[in-house]
Design a protein around this nucleic acid. Structure first.
Lengths: 247, 247
DNA sequence: AAGTTTTGTGATATAAATATAACTATAAAA
DNA sequence: TTTTATAGTTATATTTATATCACAAAACTT
């Protein structure tokens, strides 16, 4: 395995089913001096990864034949290569981290090329440090995520996916929970419907913008005393919605 | 170059049947300044261990010819060397600790190289301290595990592999027990089917996700009064399952 | 106040997730 | 070996979540 270790030019495997996205990535990474290989589906990705042993993998979650999460697992199973997952929505991040399949990093679509290149470099650097440095580095198994969000009368338990309003448990669906979580994680901050569609529904989603309204309404039915005079999930006309901390 | 003094180069025996995994371990441990030897099956592992007397052994559980647990036992029988077991699922840890065959540490696949290297160092350091102090060497399997889990009406006896519901003993199969145990060890925490498959079935398992549902249903038939309205093992739709403590 | 834009709402069709039963395979016991 | 227990798979039923749309209501404009 010394051939890769000796040469300085790093090879990056790009896995995405959309040609235009691959093109953008190839162009920019080449410009940065990296070598690139491509795969458009999961099965091919695994094959190439194991055969070519790239130094880093950019891996979309949504893939034909075999999804990104499985690809990640299988590749990591065979050898340790930094894998950056490309996700379309915030909710998928939990999946990546929760499953602990060994992804090293993730980036949410749509991403800026600059940011992506930065991440690529960071992850390549990390593995370099990891293998050269003789320090004992604490395993990140202690990665403790925030498990509760409290805003005013609202209490979100991220472990249980449970919501309490004034101490009372209310049953939200996952979609409702995610919308509320997104809003509650930045109280008082008005969020547009477009942002919600992108962050909760995923940027590949081209549905009706009214979908957000309807979901908001359903949330209100469950958390507001008087849905016609919301005190928690507030409409900012012509802009979007926000969570009021009630002060 | 500086290795000329040959003062203290430690030798590590790597036992795994998968070449790629051995490769990555060899590469990383060499980088750290260790000497490595390899074995791909249990019988060879014992032979090499006894003949070469490595300073530490990395030992996979799943091995051809002779499984890792037996290898561990035989080697420890002849001389005291730190052994780190590599396991694919959480349940196997119990085996390692429960059987008290003298393994010093374990690490669950898929592991990060960083973590593994850290463990190697820690275990080598430990034996150094022990021999310098000329203390009696005792296997560190003194990690006593929780022998009982009680959540609401549920009582798991981890030694007896026995489950009681409201004081009544119910007979679970091993698989059912492990699922219940995994959930009960973190009550109120929603666990995805994927996590269960990885932690209970093992990360190498690629079977149908519905298998979890069916196992959950069988557990419910045994522990719930009314399977159509579970009070203990609860479904969190779109996410997974969790154990309710009933409060 | 009338017009215009924006948001809310109920109904409904569709899609997705889950439960369940029946079947098959595998392993352990007799 | 045959029998029995356990585990996994598959197909289908059932339940629940979600999107969409048409219209109503409300909020801003002039």
């Amino acid at each position: 395995m010394e051939e890769e270790l000796m040469k300085d030019v790093k090879t990056i495997l790009i896995v995405d089913d959309e040609q235009p996205i691959r093109d953008i990535l190839v162009y920019n990474l080449k410009k940065e001096g990296y070598n690139t290989i491509e795969a458009s589906d999961g099965v091919t990705a695994v094959d190439i990864a194991l055969e070519k042993r790239p130094d880093l993998i950019l891996l979309d979650i949504m893939l034909p034949k075999l999804d990104g999460l499985s690809v990640c697992k299988r590749v990591k199973n065979s050898y340790n290569v930094p894998i950056i997952m490309l996700t379309a929505k915030d909710g998928e991040i939990d999946k990546i981290l929760g499953l602990e399949l060994g992804a090293d990093d993730y980036i949410t679509k749509p991403f800026s090329v600059r940011e992506l290149v930065a991440r690529v470099k960071a992850n390549l650097r990390k593995i370099e440090v990891e293998t050269n440095n003789s320090q004992v580095i604490r395993p990140d198994a202690t990665k403790k995520k925030e498990s509760k969000i409290v805003v005013g009368d609202l209490e979100l338990d991220l472990d249980k996916f449970e919501v309490k309003v004034r101490g009372e448990v209310v049953e939200l669906t996952l979609r409702e929970f995610e919308v509320l979580k997104f809003l509650a994680s930045q109280p008082e901050q008005v969020v547009t419907r477009e942002t919600l569609l992108e962050k909760v529904w995923g940027y590949e989603y081209y549905g009706d913008i009214r979908t957000v309204d309807v979901t908001v309404r359903r949330i209100r039915e469950k958390i507001e005393k008087d849905t016609s005079a919301p005190k928690i999930l507030i409409t900012k006309r012509s802009v979007g919605y926000y969570i009021s901390s009630g002060k």
